[in-house]
Nucleic acid binder design. Structure first.
Length: 931
RNA sequence: GGGUGCUUAGCUCAGUUGGGAGAGCAUCGCCCUUACAAGGCGAAGGUCGCAGGUUCGAGCCCCGCAGCACCCACCA
């Protein structure tokens, strides 16, 4: 490392080089020393690239990891990626289509080989982006959910659950994506309200002229109706229960049944029942033992050989059915209707309830201990209110459909013989053994189940499968249960709940003690970021910067709806007329930390990150100043500083207060508080006061050498301590400065330094003295500004000690006051009668210390009088309020003594201030009369 | 239909167990002062969504209302 900092802070020139050094030196692996601390990364999809949500989440995890590493813990941040079954298969299928071939052409074996190739060549995007972010994950332990050992864990879990009766196979109505041709789980279906129609049809009663009117949003499914239902207590239809209907168009006799499911208030009170194509109807069908007639192919076209609708898409069939019923005069009416349409979250296609053979996890028994773990406080959600969401879902949990009819994923370890017997086993050999037992000497052929498991199945094992389970490895013994899971609320059901269930079942313990749920990153307007809205910010663009043209291109290419491009382009031009400047990783990370308030979604706009980039610059330049002034000075722990002067004692006190607040904030995951404390301490105390104080003292020829040495040591050591506190949020700039401020680093990294030093007792006297000095300086600055005195002009000032502030405070700090306030002299006013001294005096007070300054003229007298008048008015109000409180016997009886004392003191202070202000008014108005 | 969160300065948000309303950005003055103009000094700006209640005292606790956002659910 160089021993100097460049004049200009340039994040780009330091960040990548530093990360490479960290990674190469193996710094991210556990130290094998100290209490274990472990976080599991939510494995990003291997097809993914870093978005703002990742950047936010990983910033917080890295801060926690770095904090605990510096605290001396044996720290593991387990990294890896998820095979993302459907997403990855879609990506590779698109590539194949572009090449003019297809998944089916290749066949299963060649296709999965192709996916592995893709992964080897293109699957590292997001992990490399994590490096840019500074993530101190242990790359040597990187895992992929389809690694051999993790796949082994998957089979182990599947087989165990099967043996325990918690996995079963069955023909059930599932959510079917007719484009992907696979079942998906309830969670993968999203319902949006859409405009449609409510069709009212007349169904004729068999052998009668009567008919009933049924209403439906899906006319085409009437081809599969097997009943009409009414409410059992509905007087209108009592006489029809048990009779039959001749189903129009199909001419099938179907019964009228009574079922509580029907809401008599809705529509006509009669419901068509299609058990094969509706979840509710399926349940009704089961209750009444109705036949289940499937009328659709997997691609959701009509499957009724011999019917005129056979082969029609569901949309066409709908039109035709309605037209035909219309023709027969069976359409009562058609109403506009808003209704929820279920769509697959991957394809956006309307999902069909579809009757197929699938594998399910029986969730109820697994959920019970998982609920208890949170109820008893073994697992804590932060913020706590998410526990309610968790309970709500867990207490009403449905069985989980885990089989998927795709090729990329963990193949289900089940085999069938020709008679349909199922053999679930860890390996084909074991399945064979089982089959032998059954078949004896007879020949048989086994065929493995074609389906793969839902990707979330393997994700659910992540906290223990990555650590070596089912083997009892050192990592597993050391780091399970992990400390905290950091994730978004959107995957509490998908992932968090299932990890808890499986962790308790298989690793015999909770997977983590705490779950920190963070908010969603939105754009500056509060909109969700999405490609189709064209409002995506790429974290790397914020780090490296991007010109307008490439940004436009990025946002407008590959849109699902290309017609939106012009709109997106103009919005982008308006928001980023000059593109995006490079802010650097540290500024981005710090911004995320500052925005990480409890649970809320966060709005991201460039003003914020710019402010924190400026903070980086501030720190950088402060470090440059310190280097210039204390090059040969040794960095010391805070508790070993000699701290000769009050200002050193004061800044040490401030540092210690800040440290304590930060450590407390980490304990409760308040990254916003921790980062805010750092910002304020470094900028408002260390830079604005301490460095400025030090300049004056170091440059003063009368300062003795010992004091200078002490000051230099404090300057450099407090800087050193500050950047250690800051390191978890800003790893790069702090490393660069840390390497530079001392010569004896020997290639060590700041990431292993202690987070904070031992404390020394706070010197309250020094703190009071410096706070008083700061107030005096601020008051004079204020006076100067109010009187339009140019910052460069030196002025005469005088003071009066009216009370009992220690005169030592003044004597000790008179140089600082004089220099800071740019005074040519600062002397006692003696006992001269005030108005006689000068007609150009204005004054202010700090407690009982009155300060006068000389002004060149009094042209601002009117303004000042107005200001004083306003202050006076405020004071009067306060006095009145305080007095009425103190006159209130109820208040005096019931309020705590401390509060009453406070009010009394306040009253005295206000009255004193009022007196002083009146005096100032008096002086000012007299003088303005004379001038 | 059930649930959750939000509403505080022009904007984005803090506000810990109830005890005199805060920050950043933006705005307005004045300064290119030898670490930093990505800076310094100073100023202005709020009926804490509305309406009640509890309390000596409410931004904070309770009830109601309104608006916004999100989650869950099988209403054809």
């Amino acid at each position: 490392m160089e021993n100097k900092l460049d004049r200009i802070y340039d994040p780009h020139s330091i960040e990548q080089q530093i990360y490479q050094q960290w990674e190469e030196s193996g710094n991210f692996s556990p130290s094998d020393d100290g209490a274990p601390y472990c976080i599991m990364i939510p494995p990003p999809n291997v097809t993914g690239s870093l978005h703002m949500g990742h950047a936010f989440q990983n910033t917080l995890m890295d801060a926690l990891i770095r904090y605990h590493r510096m605290k001396g813990h044996n720290t593991l941040w387990q990294v890896g990626t998820d095979h993302a079954g459907i997403a990855t298969q879609m990506v590779v299928e698109r590539l194949l289509n572009a090449e003019g071939t297809s998944r089916v052409d290749l066949g299963r074996k060649a296709f999965t080989e192709r996916v592995w190739d893709w992964k080897a060549n293109s699957g590292g995007t997001i992990t490399n982006q994590l490096r840019r972010l500074g993530a101190s994950v242990d790359w040597t332990r990187e895992r992929f959910t389809m690694d051999d050992d993790l796949s082994y864990a998957v089979r182990e879990v599947f087989v165990s659950l099967y043996e325990d009766g918690l996995i079963y196979r069955g023909k059930r109505l599932v959510n079917w994506d007719p484009v992907l041709l696979t079942a998906i789980s309830d969670l993968e279906v999203t319902s949006e309200e859409e405009s449609g129609h409510l069709w009212h049809f007349r169904y004729p009663i068999s052998g009668s002229a009567e008919h009933v009117v049924i209403a439906t949003t899906r006319p085409e499914t009437m081809l599969g109706d097997t009943a009409v239902a009414v409410h059992p207590d509905d007087d209108r239809y009592q006489h029809l229960i048990g009779k039959t209907i001749t189903l129009p168009l199909v001419n099938r006799e179907i019964p009228i049944v009574a079922d509580h499911y029907v809401d008599p208030e809705f529509g006509s009170g009669c419901v068509k029942i299609t058990p094969a194509h509706d979840f509710n109807d399926y349940a009704v069908g089961e209750r009444h033992h109705l036949p289940i007639i499937n009328i659709m192919t997997p691609r959701a076209s009509i499957d009724l050989p011999g019917s005129r609708y056979h082969g029609m898409s569901r949309e066409t069939a709908r039109q035709e059915v309605v037209a035909d019923l219309e023709q027969s005069g069976l359409v009562e009416k058609i109403e506009a209707h808003q209704y929820k349409v279920p769509r697959g979250d991957r394809t956006g296609q309307v999902v069909e309830p579809y009757l197929t053979d699938q594998w399910f996890v029986k969730a109820g028994p697994l959920a019970q201990p998982a609920i208890a773990a949170v109820k008893t406080g073994k697992i804590r959600f932060v913020p706590k209110n998410w526990e309610r969401t968790y309970f709500e879902w867990m207490e009403n949990i449905e069985d989980w459909c885990i089989s998927r009819q795709i090729w990329w994923g963990h193949r289900i370890p089940a085999w069938y013989d020709e008679e349909g017997n199922i053999f679930v086993a860890r390996t084909a050999e074991q399945a064979n053994e089982q089959a032998k037992v059954l078949h004896g000497e007879n020949d048989f052929v086994l065929r493995q189940d074609e389906d793969v498991l839902d990707t979330w199945f393997s994700s659910a094992l992540w906290p223990f499968s990555t650590l070596g389970w089912p083997q009892s490895t050192k990592a597993y013994e050391t780091f399970y249960p992990t400390n905290v899971l950091v994730t978004g609320f959107d995957i509490i059901f998908f992932w968090v709940a299932r990890m808890i269930m499986f962790g308790l079942k298989f690793a015999d313990d909770i997977p983590f003690h705490e779950v920190y749920i963070h908010g969603l990153v939105r754009d500056s307007e509060g909109q969700k970021m999405s490609k189709s809205k064209g409002n995506i910010l790429d974290p790397l663009d914020l780090i490296d910067g991007i010109e307008l043209e490439p940004l436009l291109k990025k946002r407008t290419t590959g849109l699902m709806q290309p017609e939106l491009a012009p709109q997106i382009e103009s919005a982008t031009r308006k928001e980023f007329p000059n593109g995006i400047p490079a802010y650097g990783t540290d500024a981005l990370r710090f911004t995320f930390a500052r925005l990480a308030t409890q649970g809320r979604d966060i709005r991201f706009d460039l003003g914020q990150i710019e402010g924190y980039r400026n903070f980086c610059n501030k720190l950088w330049n402060a470090a440059r100043y310190v280097l210039m002034n204390s090059e040969q000075t040794k960095v010391m722990p805070i508790d070993q500083l000699s701290a000769n002067t009050s200002i050193e004692k004061w800044i040490i006190a401030e540092l210690q207060n800040t440290t304590r607040q930060i450590e407390q904030a980490y304990e409760i995951y308040r990254f916003d508080i921790a980062s805010k404390c750092l910002y304020e301490f470094i900028w408002d105390e260390y830079c604005a006061w301490f460095i400025e104080f030090s300049k004056i003292m170091l440059r003063n020829p009368e300062t003795d050498e010992a004091t200078k040495q002490s000051l230099r040591a404090s300057l450099v050591s407090v800087l050193d301590a500050s950047i250690r506190l800051l390191h978890p949020f800003m790893p790069f700039i702090t490393e660069q400065i840390w390497q530079t401020v001392a010569n004896d680093r020997d290639g060590r990294s700041i990431m292993f330094e202690r987070f904070s030093d031992s404390t020394v007792p706070i010197n309250e006297g020094a703190v009071a003295e410096i706070n008083w000095t700061k107030s005096v300086i601020s008051s004079i600055r204020n006076l100067r500004s109010e009187n339009d005195i140019k910052p460069g002009d030196k002025i005469v000032a005088m003071y009066q000690l009216l009370g009992d502030e220690p005169s030592s405070w003044l004597n000790q700090n008179i140089l600082l006051i004089t220099e800071f306030a740019r005074l040519s002299s600062f002397k006692p006013l003696k006992d001269a009668p005030e108005p006689a001294v000068s007609s150009h005096l204005v004054s202010t007070e700090v407690g009982d210390f009155r300060i006068y300054i000389q002004t060149g003229d009094l042209e601002h007298a009117e303004e000042q009088l107005a200001r004083l008048e306003k202050q006076l008015k405020n004071l009067e109000q306060q006095i009145k309020r305080t007095q009425s409180k103190l006159n209130n016997t109820q208040f005096l009886e019931k309020a705590p003594a401390a509060v009453i004392d406070k009010e009394r003191t306040r009253l005295l202070e206000c009255e004193k201030s009022r007196k002083l202000i009146r005096e100032r008014q008096h002086r000012l108005s007299n003088h303005s009369l004379t001038s």
